[in-house]
C-alpha cells in the first residue's frame, strides 16, 4: 500500500507539480481562512492575532443576534435574492423566446448586443448612473417630475423605494447574460417538435407554450436551484455602489455582505463581523446541500456532486 503510494507519487510527479500553484492558492486563500473561523469565537486583539487572541465563546454571536441586525440583514439578503431569481429568470426567458422567434438577423444581433451591454460595466459606473437618474436636486427622474408639475421624490432618503429599484437594477444588469444562456438552451431544442406542432395546426403562441417552455424546464430548474443555493450571498458590488454608507436606507437595503464589510472596515468590530460571516457561511452551506439533494432527486446527472 505504502509502496503503491510512493510509486504513484513518482508516476504523477509532473501532474502534481502542475497542480502545485493552484493548490497553494486555494490552501492559502480558502482553506486557511476556513480555519480562521475561530476568530468568531475570540476577542480579537492585534497583538495576539488569529491564534493568540483570547477565547470568548459565543459572545460575538450573541452580540450579533442581540443587536437586532441579524434578522434584518438575513431577511433582506434572502428576500432580495428570491425577487432577483423570479424577476430575472422570467424576463430572461421572455427575451430569449422572443429573440428566437422574431425574424431579421440584424435586428436580433443588435437587440442581443444591447441587452448584453450592461453586463460589461462595473458596479461603480452603475452606481453613478443610478445617482444621475435618481438624486433629488438634478436627477433625471425628478427633472421630469418637476417638468410635469409633480412633486419630486426624495429617493435617497426613502427606504420604501429601494426594493423595487434594486430589483430593477439587477434585472437590467443581468438581462443579457441570462438571455444568452436561455437562448442557447432554446436553440438546442429538437426542431422536429416544432414541425410536429406545425403539422398539428398549433399557432405560434401554442407552440411556445406547449413546445418551447416545457423543453426549457430542465434548464430553468437547474439555473433556479443553483441560484437558490446562493440565496444567502448578497451581491456586495451592487448594494455597496447603489446604497453606499447611506444609513437612512439600511432598513430595506442592508444585506449580510454589506453588514459584514461595514463591521470590519468602518467599525472595526472584528469578532462580530467574523461571527456574522460564519453565520452566513453555515447557512449558505446548508442551503447548497439541501438544493443539491433536490437536484439529485430531480435529475442525478445535473447534481453538483
Amino acid at each position: 500500500m505504502r509502496s503503491g503510494f510512493w510509486h504513484d507519487l513518482r508516476k504523477y510527479k509532473m501532474f502534481l507539480l502542475m497542480l502545485t500553484p493552484a493548490v497553494i492558492f486555494y490552501l492559502l486563500f480558502a482553506y486557511i481562512p476556513m480555519a480562521g473561523i475561530i476568530i468568531a469565537f475570540k476577542r480579537y486583539d492585534y497583538a495576539g492575532g488569529i491564534f493568540g487572541s483570547a477565547w470568548n465563546g459565543w459572545d460575538n454571536f450573541r452580540f450579533f443576534f442581540d443587536s437586532g441586525n441579524a434578522w434584518q440583514v438575513t431577511r433582506n439578503t434572502a428576500l432580495y435574492n428570491i425577487a432577483f431569481i423570479v424577476v430575472n429568470n422570467a424576463l430572461q426567458i421572455f427575451a430569449a423566446i422572443l429573440l428566437f422567434e422574431v425574424g431579421g438577423k440584424w435586428f436580433r444581433k443588435i437587440v442581443q448586443s444591447a441587452l448584453f451591454l450592461p453586463y460589461f460595466i462595473s458596479w461603480v459606473v452603475v452606481g453613478a448612473i443610478a445617482y444621475n437618474l435618481l438624486n433629488y436636486d438634478i436627477g433625471t427622474v425628478n427633472a421630469l417630475l418637476r417638468g410635469l408639475g409633480l412633486e419630486p421624490v426624495d429617493i435617497y432618503n426613502t427606504p420604501a423605494y429601494w426594493p423595487f429599484l434594486l430589483v430593477l437594477v439587477s434585472a437590467w444588469k443581468g438581462l443579457g447574460y441570462g438571455t444568452v444562456m436561455y437562448l442557447a438552451a432554446i436553440t438546442s431544442i429538437d426542431t422536429e417538435m416544432y414541425e410536429a406542432a406545425e403539422i398539428d395546426g398549433a399557432n405560434i403562441f401554442q407552440r411556445i407554450l406547449k413546445v418551447t417552455i416545457p423543453n426549457l424546464y430542465p434548464t430553468i430548474i437547474i439555473l433556479v436551484l443553483l441560484a437558490v443555493g446562493n440565496i444567502f450571498r448578497g451581491d456586495f458590488g451592487m448594494f455597496y455602489n447603489m446604497v453606499g454608507n447611506n444609513g437612512v436606507l439600511f432598513s430595506s437595503t442592508d444585506v449580510i455582505d454589506t453588514f459584514v464589510f461595514r463591521s470590519l472596515i468602518t467599525s472595526n468590530d472584528i469578532g462580530m463581523s467574523a461571527a456574522a460571516g460564519v453565520f452566513q457561511s453555515v447557512l449558505g452551506f446548508a442551503t447548497i446541500m439541501a438544493v443539491n439533494y433536490a437536484v439529485r432527486r430531480y435529475d442525478k446527472d445535473r447534481a453538483l456532486f
Binding site: 486555494y26 482553506y31 481562512p33 480555519a35 488569529i50 464589510f261 470590519l264
Partner: peptide
C-alpha cells in the same frame, strides 16, 4: 473536489482579509 469545495464553503470575509493584510 479540493478545488470545488471552496465554492461551497468559505471562512467569510474577515479571516481572508486579516490573512492578506496582517499575515
Amino acid at each position: 473536489f479540493f478545488f470545488f469545495f471552496t465554492t461551497l464553503f468559505s471562512g467569510g470575509l474577515v479571516p481572508w482579509y486579516l490573512l492578506i493584510v496582517n499575515y
